[in-house]
Structures are given as C-alpha cells and as structure tokens.
Amino acid sequence: MQTLDLKQSYFELFGLDLKFDIDLKQLHSEQQRLQAIFHPDRFVRASDQEKRLSVQQASWVNEGYESLLNPVKRARYMLQLSGLELNDESETTSDTGFLMEQIAIREEIDECHSNADPLSCCEHIAVRLRSKADQFGAEFVASFSQGALDEARLTSRKMQFVARIMDQLMDLQIELEEELEI
C-alpha cells in the first residue's frame, strides 16, 4: 500500500504554501483525495498491518485538515513549525488594554439576556468579534512575515481569546433561539 511521509508538514501534505491565507477549497479537495486513498473503508479486507497503517495515515490526514482549517490552530501550527514551543496553559497575555476589552465584551454578552431584542444584541457583538478576528489575523500575518515570532505568538493568543468568546456567544444565541422558539 501507498504510504505518506509523516515527516512532511501539513502544508506540504495538502500541497499548500506555508502562509496564513490558504486556499480552503484546495485544502478540502486534497483532504478528500487523500481520504479516498487511505480511509480504513478501503482496507476492510486487508491484513491487520495494512489496516493499522490505514487508520494511522487517515488519522494524520484528518488531524492535518483540522489544524489548517481552523485559523487559530493554523496560526499556532505555523509558530510550531518555526520552532516555537507553545504551551496553552502557561501562556498569558499582559496586554491590559486587550484584557479590559475582553472583560467589557463578556459583560455585554451577559447583559444581552435582559435586552429588549437579545438576538440582535448578540448579532452586533458577533459582528464586532468577527472584525476583531480579522484584524488579529492580519496582525499575525504581518508579524510572522517579518519574523517577529514572539509578537505573532501573542497575537495568536488573542485570536484564541476571541474564538472562545465567539463560542460562548454562539451558545447564548442558541439558548435564546430556543427560548424564543425560532
């Protein structure tokens, strides 16, 4: 059976250039092309060793796909490829302005519930968060391309914060929709 070079980067695996703005269509079609070769369904009647290999390679393709699909994960992965050791637990941001902003947004989200039109209140925050995400994405690209990796890492942390708040906001939206039966 065919085997993949597990030492190559995910960017190489999917035939993509090492940069933040990737062609998501290509990522998707390459993932499907690779799964068509390595998916365990192609090896149900093969030897145990081939089955194991297939699970390993198909898993690796999926892990790569997920790592590049999600912008935050993609940014973190690029930093890792550049030799940075990342630790989610111990890393914090000391940018007080950013932290204050985050706290303010969280408070706003909590207040949405008592708003007369809670859903559009959520939507307003979502729009702002999306533009924040875009802004940090652009900042990441700038720092990374200049080789300012530490700065890029801090930006990637901010991207992570924003993504988490976005998740919370979506949870609230679903709860509200449920209450309002939309």
């Binding site: 365990p40 198909a58 898993s59 999926n62 892990e63 997920e66």
Partner: peptide, 8 residues
C-alpha cells in the same frame, strides 16, 4: 464533529 479516524 472532528472527522474520523483521528488520533491525538
């Protein structure tokens, strides 16, 4: 909702 098979 992560595609399977997958390993971590």
């Amino acid at each position: 909702n992560t595609p399977i098979p997958v390993a971590k």
